[in-house]
Amino acid sequence: MTSILILNGPNLNLLGTRQPEVYGRETLAMVEEKCQRHGTSAGVEITCLQSNHEGVLLDAIHAAKGRHDGIILNAGAFTHSSVALMDAIYSVEVPTIEVHLSNIHARESFRQTSYISKAVIGQICGFGSFGYLMAIDALIERFKGGSDE
């Protein structure tokens, strides 16, 4: 069975209460449940992990090689600072899509730089939790051979 790992970084455990005007009112549990249902309907296994610790995210990316067919990563603030996450994505060679709930390109200038974007196959931002479903669909299309890039 096709398997996708969904990784969420720092502060995403606070979804629904942290700046709901920016990140929405859905909790992380609600987002993960939505992803699980979407994956199940498409015949894809979804595994979710959230951590506020960069090393835990790095370990999960490393462990994904040979276990998961794709990764969806919302690295939170690590997006704008982590060369280590970028290097890990390059190293495991597992197709990875970067997701953000808000449109990082319309926010503060420091949020407009993504280190991990250099290593991922695509970036989805600004669509709230729907962006995760878009990323699942994009990976499925890639697995079917619908996209080589």
Score class of each variant (00 low, 15 high):
Y132N: 03
D137E: 01
L49V: 10
D137K: 00
L15N: 01
F143D: 00
L15C: 07
A75P: 07
R18T: 03
D69F: 05
N74F: 13
L58V: 11
D69W: 01
L139V: 00
T40Q: 15
Q123P: 02
S82V: 07
R107M: 04
D137R: 00
E54S: 08
F130I: 12
Y23S: 08
Y132G: 01
E33Q: 13
I124Q: 03
Q36S: 08
L15S: 07
D69M: 05
S91Y: 10
V56K: 02
T2S: 04
P20K: 11
G9Q: 01
I121F: 11
L5F: 02
H68K: 09
E32R: 12
A75W: 10
Q112N: 10
V99T: 07
R25E: 15
V22H: 12
I104L: 15
S91D: 15
V83G: 05
D148M: 07
Y115D: 04
I72K: 09
A106L: 09
R18E: 11
G131Y: 08
E45W: 06
R37Q: 14
H68Q: 04
T2W: 01
H38S: 14
E93M: 12
S114T: 07
G146H: 02
Q112S: 13
E141C: 06
Y90W: 14
M30S: 09
I104V: 15
S41F: 08
Q36M: 12
H62K: 04
C125D: 03
S3P: 00
S91C: 13
R37T: 15
L57C: 08
Y23I: 03
R142H: 00
A63C: 10
A60N: 02
T113L: 11
M1Y: 03
G122P: 06
